[in-house]
Amino acid sequence: MSRKKTMPSPVVEKLKKQISAIEKGSLVEKNNIFLSTGSHEVDRIFPANSIESSSLIEVLPESYRQRSAAMGAALALSARLLHQKPGPLIWCQLRDPERLHLHAPGLMAFGIDPQRIVKLTIKNEQDLLWAMEEALDCPYLCGVVGVLWKEKLYNFTASRRLSLRARESGVSALMLRSHRANGTTAADIRLSVSAKISSEMPPRKVFLPRIGKTIWNLELKKCRGARSGSWQIGWNHETVSFDLASQLAGRAPLPESTASSPHRYTG
């Protein structure tokens, strides 16, 4: 009964250290690549001025009507991934009644080579989560994307599994979820996306003016070490990169250096 008073055992101390190391992800630093969004201004949104490749990113549309915008943003992120890392990308999609399917010629135009995409058509959510987890176990891959408009099994545990796997292998995971998705998940980054109408003011004389550049309103809902906020970010299919569409309107900029970031890009 006198055990209470004794000093903490060295084993416990060691375990505590390990746990904190795992939480920081430093044990598996070797697999981690820092991804750039292609624009220094957009990079600054994220801690360490980049997106860690070994993270689980959730992309949510802001509303039902914004689902194609969310798909677009997820595809833009995938395009960045494919641009910076070798290997194929696995696209997991349920045999969806909504039937929003990838269109290969359009992907090529968007900046993604369809040859590098392996598309899985999956019957149920359980298999989809299994397929994603398996993909995250294969460091040869560039990334894996899951489309889950209706979720029942995807919860904290499931997302934690994906996140840990991603951390081990350095393969990026993207999860497209419904705008109604709620509940806590272990995603490293969560983005809410809505499309923005073409920014220029329409000229008066034209009845229906032409369509402008692709711009999304990205709201950063969750990201450790970064401030939440929303940004208007455009997609440039010629350079396959994001860019900040307009100045940060009246918002405080991020502090120059975040304390917990050993890596920084210069210039």
Partner: peptide
């Protein structure tokens, strides 16, 4: 390893459901 992954997908999901795009 990637081939092995594709095989496991094929056997669980059916090889017809593991696809690639062709023009």
């Amino acid at each position: 390893e990637f081939q092995a992954l594709i095989d496991r997908y094929g056997n669980r999901l059916g090889f017809n459901n593991v696809g690639k795009f062709l023009p």
